[in-house]
Amino acid sequence: MALKVAIAAGGTAGHINPALALAEELKDRGDEVSFFGQPNRLEATLVPQAGFPFFETHITGFDRARPWTLVFALVRMEHAEKQIAEYFEKVGKPNVAVGFGAYVEMPLLRWCHANNVPVVIHEQNSVPGLANKSCAHFAAIVCLSLPAAKDAFRKDIGPETTVMVTGNPVRRSVINASREKGRDDFQVPQDAEMLLVFGGSLGARHLNSAVANMKDELLSRKNLYVIHSTGRQDFDAVKEHLNLTAQEQKRYHIMPYIDSMGEALAAADAVISRAGASSIAEIAALCVPSILVPYPKATADHQTINARYLVDHGAAKLTPDSEIDGEGFKQEVLHLIDHQEEREKMRKAAHGLGQAHAACALADAVEMAQSS
């Protein structure tokens, strides 16, 4: 029987893209998927672009440093639940509701729980957010990207809640990306080696600077091309720092943002990256050898815990942010570039994690919740 599945995901691509990966899998199974999110956030752009119905909800979180903001947040929550109730009265309630974290999920999941609709939540990080922890006690199933999150949920789940590790779903456009097309897109010869560097706009400045300082050593490898995504905020500063000559620009490509991350990863022989949940998932899904530099100010140092999942399985190396200005980091990068056999071992280790099948595993959990 085809299911009607309501999904709430919003705020950042790290929440939205896994939700869209699940939606793609459910759609292929013949299920009907609709999304709930805020009209002024990223989900209002990405979800319609992907071709899924989008219902606008208006919700705000509260600042724990300013407790009085809780009153306004609760008023908006109640209003959003009423809007959702009116919507479901017109179209019929869903068979399952799925939340991907952030406050935008709470009115949908609370209404569904109150109206006997099974709830599934998915946590992308090793340290769960407040919204998912708040909803875990009434969830039928809590799905985790990383085993390390199990302990963090232990006190929050209900007595009948099932907890399972599904991995973090990655969109088909990433998983099906072509190395050949990626090389063409980034103007890298098919027989060259390619290093991909990215960190995003948040917390990437130190990483950008450390890699830029290695420019001469990197370009001394005659067959190496570097694709360096700086984040929009840091592009001008990194461009000035690198001061690339016309000759160097042929093999060191700098850009503020990469739209086609799937092609970039598929084309890469090695990656230097922060350790956000989505980055970890995409790197693992495409089995790219990586050196991970966790963002040191992430909540509860969750990026380090994220990174350890790949590192402990032999699929990545980890360097703390405090050490990337030293000689050790430089030698780690150059060693990975210079030793293909090491990269092959890391690729095999990443393949063994089965991250490319996470969307299927999460869709199975949604079906399980409906039938339980």
Rank of each mutant, 00 (worst) to 15 (best):
8 A>W: 02
12 T>S: 12
12 T>W: 02
15 H>A: 08
21 A>Q: 11
30 G>P: 06
37 G>V: 05
41 R>T: 12
81 E>Q: 15
87 Y>K: 02
87 Y>P: 04
89 E>G: 12
100 F>L: 08
105 E>K: 06
107 P>K: 08
108 L>H: 02
112 C>Q: 00
112 C>F: 06
118 P>V: 02
121 I>S: 04
127 V>D: 00
141 I>T: 09
142 V>W: 08
142 V>T: 10
144 L>V: 03
147 P>G: 00
151 D>T: 13
151 D>F: 11
154 R>M: 05
163 V>A: 05
164 M>K: 14
168 N>F: 04
171 R>H: 03
175 I>G: 07
178 S>A: 11
179 R>A: 15
179 R>G: 12
180 E>Q: 12
186 F>H: 09
206 H>Q: 15
210 A>V: 05
214 M>Y: 07
214 M>Q: 07
215 K>I: 02
230 T>D: 04
235 F>Y: 14
241 H>V: 01
257 Y>N: 05
265 L>S: 02
274 R>E: 04
276 G>Q: 00
280 I>C: 08
289 P>I: 13
291 I>K: 06
297 K>D: 14
303 Q>A: 03
304 T>L: 13
307 A>L: 02
316 A>I: 02
320 P>Y: 03
320 P>F: 01
330 K>E: 14
332 E>R: 15
334 L>T: 08
335 H>A: 08
337 I>K: 07
346 M>L: 11
357 H>Y: 14
359 A>N: 09
361 A>N: 15
368 M>L: 15
